[in-house]
Computed example of a mutant assay.
Amino acid sequence: MANFHLYFASCALLLILRPSTGLPVRNLSPEYHAQCPELFKNLLLNIKEVLKSDDLCSSIMSDTVAIKSKAETVLACAPALAQTSSCIGQSSSSFSENECLSNITKDLAHYDALIQSYLNSSLKSPEKEAKLLNPTLGIIKSLRENCSLKAAEDDDSSEEDVAQTWDAGSFNNRQEMCKMMRGFYVRTITINRAMGYISAGDYKK
C-alpha cells in the first residue's frame, strides 16, 4: 500500500510540474527535421572541443557545472508521460512541441548573449579565446536564424542580463565561463535528446 501511495504521489507531482500550454503543435517542415537536429549535434561536438581546449579550462581546478539560463528546457522537453510511465490519465498530448522549442530558443539566446558578453570582458588571451568561441557563436547564430520558434528580437535574454557575471579579473572570468560552458554542454545534451524525440514524432500518435 505504501508503494502505491508513493507511485500515485509521483504521478501527481509530474502532472503539477509539467508546463501546460494552449499553443497548437506546429507542423515542422522536412527541411527543419533535416537541418536543425544536425546543427544541434554540431553544437554539442563544438562545445565538447571547447571544453578540451587549454585556452578556456586550463588550470581550472573546480569541476563545477553552472547553468544560469532561465529557460525550463529540461521540464518542457521531457517526453510525454505515456511514453515513459503508466501513470493513469496521462496521454501523449501532455508533450508540447511549441513549449519545448520555445525554451530551447531561450537557451540559445542566453548562451549567445553570455559568450558575446564574455568575449567583451577582461580576458587573458583575447585573440585565442575569440578564435575558440567564435565558431560556437556561428552555430548558435545559424540555429537562431533557422531553428528558433520566435524572432531573435523577441528573445528574453540580452548581453546586459549576463554582463554582471564578469569582474575585472581574467582568471575569475575564465573560471566562471568554464563552469557555464560545462553547463551549456549538459543543456545541449538535453536539447539533442529533445530534437530526437520531436523528429520521431511518437507523441503525435
Rank of each mutant, 00 (worst) to 15 (best):
N3A: 11
H5W: 01
H5C: 00
Y7M: 01
Y7C: 00
F8A: 11
S10H: 14
L15R: 15
L15I: 00
I16P: 04
R18I: 00
L23M: 05
P24K: 07
V25T: 08
V25H: 10
R26C: 02
N27C: 03
L28E: 06
S29W: 00
Y32A: 08
Q35E: 00
P37C: 00
E38V: 13
F40I: 00
K41Y: 01
K41F: 13
N42K: 09
N42W: 01
L44P: 03
L44G: 05
K48S: 05
L51R: 12
D55P: 09
L56S: 01
L56Y: 02
C57E: 02
S58F: 07
S59L: 08
S59T: 12
S59Y: 05
I60N: 02
S62A: 03
D63G: 08
T64G: 00
A66P: 01
A66D: 04
I67N: 12
I67P: 15
S69Q: 07
S69W: 04
A71W: 00
T73E: 01
V74H: 14
C77E: 05
P79I: 03
A82H: 09
Q83L: 11
Q83D: 15
S85Q: 11
S86T: 15
I88V: 09
S91L: 14
S92C: 14
S94E: 06
E97A: 09
E99N: 14
E99T: 11
L101F: 07
L101H: 10
N103H: 06
N103A: 08
A109M: 12
Y111I: 14
I115C: 05
S117L: 06
Y118K: 15
L119S: 13
N120Y: 09
K124V: 00
K124Q: 05
S125R: 15
K131R: 09
K131Y: 12
L132C: 01
L133A: 12
L137Y: 01
G138V: 04
I139H: 11
I140K: 15
S142N: 10
S142E: 01
E145K: 15
E145C: 14
C147S: 01
S148C: 03
K150H: 13
A152K: 09
A152P: 11
E153H: 14
E153N: 13
D154T: 14
D154M: 14
E160S: 13
D161T: 06
V162D: 12
Q164C: 13
T165W: 08
W166F: 13
A168Q: 06
S170F: 04
F171D: 06
N172M: 05
N173F: 10
E176P: 03
E176G: 09
C178D: 02
C178W: 10
C178V: 06
K179A: 14
M180C: 02
R182D: 03
G183A: 12
Y185E: 02
V186R: 15
R187L: 06
R187H: 08
R187I: 04
I189C: 08
T190C: 05
R193N: 14
R193C: 05
R193G: 07
R193P: 05
A194S: 12
A194H: 03
M195Q: 02
G196W: 13
G196R: 15
Y197V: 13
I198S: 03
A200W: 07
D202N: 05
K205C: 01
